[in-house]
Simulated assay, not measured.
Amino acid sequence: MPTRNAPIRPATVLDTAAVAAVHLQAWRETFGDRVPEEVYTDRAVRWPGEWEATLADPDGPATWLAERDGEAVGVAQAVATGAGKIRSLELKYLFVLAAEHGRRTGTHLLELAVGDAPCLLWVVEDSEEAIGFYRQHGFELDGARRPAVDGHLTEVRMLR
């Protein structure tokens, strides 16, 4: 029997805890011990307030929340970067819990967040699964790199 899609809807300020929790869990699943525990502890404290401010802002970017059986399993957000930038749209967040990999939740979140628009995103350079996923959706590495996660990881930029 085919797997049903995870329902996706716009997140609201009432979803703050769920969005922050799925963001942190996806980080832990993706980065594991490559990121020190104190970074995760710091994010567990900071992110609920940051997400609350973002989700409460009526002029803020749309944030999409995927849920399965009433539990948050993914989140995506894109922002307008402004005129004169390399792309006018940036995918800021796309995190899906490991249990959702292969279930098209990431694809559906990406489609809602950016559609088929020209876009940029940053991804951890050794995340081959993520880089492959974005390549399947028309993104290509452009050679730009930057430190991430308090300097513990390096991100590479992808463009479409």
Rank of each mutant, 00 (worst) to 15 (best):
P2Y: 05
N5L: 01
N5G: 02
A6Y: 07
T12C: 01
V13M: 07
D15V: 12
V19H: 08
A20T: 09
A21H: 09
L24M: 08
Q25H: 08
A26E: 03
D33L: 00
R34E: 11
V35Q: 03
P36W: 00
E38T: 13
V39P: 02
Y40S: 09
T41I: 13
T41C: 06
D42A: 08
R43H: 06
V45L: 14
V45W: 14
P48N: 09
G49D: 04
G49W: 03
L55H: 05
L55F: 06
L55C: 06
A56E: 02
A56P: 00
D57L: 06
P58W: 11
A62T: 15
T63I: 06
L65R: 11
D69G: 14
V73C: 12
G74P: 15
A76N: 01
A76H: 05
A76Y: 07
A78M: 03
V79A: 15
I86A: 14
R87Y: 07
K92R: 15
Y93I: 15
L94T: 02
G102C: 09
R104I: 02
T105K: 05
L112N: 00
V114R: 11
P118S: 12
C119N: 08
C119W: 11
L120R: 15
V124N: 02
E128A: 10
E128V: 09
E129C: 03
A130I: 08
G132L: 02
Q136S: 12
H137A: 01
E140C: 14
D142T: 13
D142M: 10
R146E: 15
P147A: 04
A148C: 04
A148P: 00
V149R: 01
E155G: 05
E155F: 00
E155R: 07
R157D: 10
M158V: 13
L159T: 13
L159K: 04
L159S: 06
